[in-house]
Design a protein around this nucleic acid. Structure first.
Lengths: 319, 319
DNA sequence: TTGTATGCGTTATCAT
DNA sequence: ATGATAACGCATACAA
């Protein structure tokens, strides 16, 4: 592979001049520029990007740590991230963490070792301290409802969204309300739990453990919940469900088994994924594509700030 | 940022020795190793990965060009790719091309400029020549049914899968068969078209342009097709549909409008996505996760070969 | 077992 | 307007 020195020699100029034409710098005569271009052509020259990275100390790469990709919540975020990265001329390197701290650490190390200029964490298993520890090595933005003052977060306010959903159900006359959650111990899940408990307290209803369904991420999980729901002695009349995917699985399975939505049980999803419209699911729309774009904006600034995006109720026929 | 020379000086050894302990090379006394480790600790040293890349001439990065990510076909492939990349200690850089030749070119250029050691193309708008042109710069594997002898392909045999689907419908007594396609001019779409025409000829039925539905990628597209279907003067009794997503949209909308599946129209999806089970969709299962893993295996070998993965009929209640 | 010197390919500083 | 030279940080052939 021909390098910049070969080109310089071939063109009868210095490497500096070659570098100048490469980077469209001023102060190079048309004559020399042509000579350089001719030499590049002849030698089949192209720049080695690693050398540029080393020399410049930046890679125009943004790392994205995501638990798994084949999940509409994350892939929608990623779509927004990719769109904005394109605009800002960044490329993306992708770390599938599967909620393993060890894999999240790899992404953080990549930032430290200058593989990427910044890091986006879409969800995490590691504690805040682990993340905080790496902030000195470059901008990090987390996609979570912010309650950490030192780490920039861009997200929807999951706490408020969930509380809004609860109040909506209450206003519709429901008092026996259950809910589904993605995984225990996630930040967003904790916020939902908190909102749930507070609203329950508000209407003076007890917390019933068997009305809380854990590990709900996929359509299949929704089906599973439907079956668990049916085997309940006492059933809630309303359910707030992790996502539209899970809500869809729930609705399809429940109706197959003769449960009527919303007559027997009202359900509310989150995201406003196309599947929600197809299944006539009332849902709380989260602007995930926008959040994704915002994440890239934030991480590409020297001092990222936090931002919270609004949600919106989309009323359909499941409540 | 402390570099390897600083560590060497601090430890009172040469850079070579430091490099040796960094890379677990033999021939370094325990004493010096300790001194080096101590120095690294004191200076807060860590390796700069770009320097390693430049020096070694490899990045352990694999590029993945994908039209868009928020689509279950691609995100399932990507999930397999990421899983296998993890095993083989590769990271992934992600190029969202949106079927723009210009963006695909960027991914190819990244290979040429040594940003990535190999490139995976999940689907493309560019011609074979454009891809072929870059093969000299590193391994490229395309996720398509192979008919190009020079470019390695790993995929499901979409032609055979579609033909199999046609024969299945025919065997079920259908003679008026239509189909949905993702986009015209895609390799896989062309193969499906070919299989469709051949089987039509086989049963001596005419090709009816209004029974072929283009641009079908999402649930919404399925709904649209259902409406187009209903406005048809003469309707086919069976439909082969791009993917389970589209088939799901079709079924939901059609049934909402009083069309019975499979009594009025039999439908067959592809992929065996969870939504297919939820909606009782007969489908042709494609081992996309495996294909994804295989893509990484192939691209990480010096001379990638092609491979075709088998499909499997999953009979449910939509045919 | 250890160190010296050179290569990797580019950008940036500074002098001219 | 142009060029010599020093970074950038690491790996490695070769010598010792």
């Amino acid at each position: 592979m021909a390098n910049i020195r070969d080109v310089a020699k071939q063109a009868g100029v210095s490497v500096t001049t070659v570098s100048r034409v490469l980077n469209d710098h001023p102060y190079v005569t048309e004559e020399k520029r042509l000579a350089v271009e001719k030499a590049m052509e002849e030698l089949g020259y192209y720049q080695n990007i690693n050398a540029i990275h080393l020399s410049k100390g930046e890679t125009r790469l943004i790392g994205v740590a995501v638990p798994f990709i084949n999940h509409s919540y994350f892939s929608t975020l990623l779509n927004g991230i990719a769109d904005q990265a394109l605009v800002r001329d960044y490329n993306l390197v992708f770390y599938q963490t599967n909620y393993q701290e060890q894999e999240e650490r790899k992404a953080l190390e990549a930032l430290k070792r200058k593989q990427v200029d910044g890091l986006l964490i879409l969800s995490r298993a590691s504690g805040w301290e682990a993340v905080d520890e790496y902030q000195e090595f470059g901008p990090i933005v987390v996609c979570e409802s912010s309650n950490h003052t030192r780490i920039p977060c861009v997200s929807v306010d999951h706490y408020e969204a969930f509380r809004f959903g609860m109040r909506y159900m209450i206003q519709k006359g429901h008092r026996h309300i259950g809910y589904c959650i993605g995984r225990m111990n996630g930040t967003n899940s904790n916020l939902r739990e908190m909102a749930y408990c507070e609203e329950l307290e508000f209407i003076e209803e007890p917390y019933r453990k068997d009305w809380v369904f854990n590990n709900c991420l996929t359509i299949e999980d929704g089906k599973r919940v439907a079956n668990e729901y049916m085997s309940l002695e006492e059933r809630p009349s309303a359910l707030l469900i992790t996502s539209d995917q899970v809500a869809a699985g729930f609705r399809m399975e429940a109706e197959k088994q003769g449960i009527r939505v919303p007559a027997d049980v009202a359900i509310l999803g989150f995201d406003n994924h196309p599947i929600a419209e197809a299944l006539d699911l009332t849902t709380i729309e989260l602007p995930l594509h926008e959040v994704g774009m915002s994440l890239v904006e934030k991480v590409s600034s020297k001092n990222p700030t936090s931002a919270i995006y609004p949600f919106e109720l989309v009323e359909r026929g499941s409540v």
